[in-house]
């Protein structure tokens, strides 16, 4: 977490002074929500429950990291849910129907995810298809491939060792939470501390300007969309391991959950601003709200209403504070 804080501070002191405020605000809201929910039920603030929630949010978290990078450049990737489904199918199909050894099948699933992301990035940078349109088309296409390959069959009966990834623990902490933590640290450092990360902000601020200042815009973009596909593939493998089956409709609607987490974390959809810390706070907040509200007896339909309101209010509040500040200065 130290890296994250440092990253955020650096970002705050740099060219986005207002940015730190959103994360602070979000953290304050999160703590208040935690205290409130913990006061409502003693089942909520327990190590067991929190670790378990970590297990459940790993897939959204993993995909939200590259999504942050993409949204920072002013792009978007709507196809992540479909890539997740496609990779799950590739894993199951190549293992069961093609007789590929399971470890190799896992690598193949990651490979297909990477390739799917690369295809998005290639069309976006080379053919200049706007990201939203490109990934809207592949949202349908990749899901279609998953359906076509699987012929709507589920693949089951994976060996026990495979479930370690999605259902097992390492030193008492869910396996995928370790993976998520490592990925968070790496992407946070990349975004905040490397020329590559600064390049992404520059692209989001002013793409033409970034191009003229010598940033290899197309290569950077290609990398982040490919990375997004790879992470969706990884999330897919973990998902299959967690639920022990493979279905072509896996990950439907994931893109909206992920985007909600990223924008709740303060990353501007217009590009140029945002931090990994914000995104992490964003997906933790959504997961704990869902969990905490359920534990205090709020029904599912009411919970999504609350989440919608929180999403709008938190951005509204940040906007308001920022404007007050810029008005005072």
């Amino acid at each position: 977490m130290a890296t994250l804080d440092a990253a955020a501070k650096k970002q705050g002191k740099g060219w986005q002074p207002a940015l730190l405020r959103h994360e602070v605000l979000l953290a304050v809201i999160l703590v208040i929500a935690l205290i409130f929910l913990a006061a409502q039920t003693d089942k909520f603030l327990t190590t067991g429950n929190l670790l378990n929630q970590g297990r459940l949010m790993a897939e959204v978290g993993l995909v939200a990291l590259p999504m942050t990078l993409i949204i920072v450049t002013g792009g978007i990737d709507l196809s992540v849910g479909s890539i997740l489904g496609l990779c799950a199918i590739v894993l199951g199909y190549s293992w069961k129907n093609l007789g590929v050894p399971l470890p190799l099948a896992m690598v193949m699933a990651l490979g297909v995810g990477t390739l799917a992301g690369f295809a998005n990035g290639w069309f976006i940078t080379r053919v200049r298809v706007p990201p939203l349109i490109m990934t809207l088309a592949t949202l349908a296409f990749y899901r279609g491939l998953a359906e076509g390959i699987s012929q709507a069959r589920s693949v089951r009966g994976y060996p026990d060792w495979f479930f370690q990834l999605g259902q097992g623990d390492v030193w008492g902490v869910p396996t995928q939470l370790w993976i998520l933590a490592v990925a968070v640290v790496i992407t946070a450092v990349i975004l905040a501390r490397t020329p590559f990360g600064r390049g992404l902000y520059a692209i989001g601020h002013n793409e033409v300007g970034a191009r003229f200042s010598g940033i290899p815009v197309d290569r950077y973009k290609l990398i982040i969309y490919t990375f997004s596909g790879a992470m969706a593939g990884l999330a897919g493998v973990i998902f299959v391991s967690r639920v022990s089956t493979t279905r072509s409709d896996m990950g439907t609607g994931l893109e909206l959950d992920v985007i909600a987490a990223v924008v709740l974390g303060g990353t501007s959809i217009f590009g140029g601003t945002g931090t990994m810390l914000g995104t992490v706070l964003g997906f933790i907040m959504i997961q704990l709200l869902k969990n905490g509200l359920a534990l205090t007896g709020v029904k599912g339909d009411a919970t999504i209403v609350v989440i919608g309101i929180v999403l709008i209010l938190s951005i509204l509040l940040t906007n308001f504070i920022q404007r007050r500040r810029s008005g005072n200065e």
Binding site: L56, V243, G253, N291, A294, G300, D301
Partner: peptide, 23 residues
């Protein structure tokens, strides 16, 4: 009665998990 708003395996699992925690 409580459950997901879409027939989604992941959401359903999350709901069940929450109710196990709730006791």
């Amino acid at each position: 009665t409580d459950g997901p708003t879409e027939a989604n395996i992941d959401d359903q699992i999350t709901f069940l998990d929450n109710f196990i925690t709730q006791g």
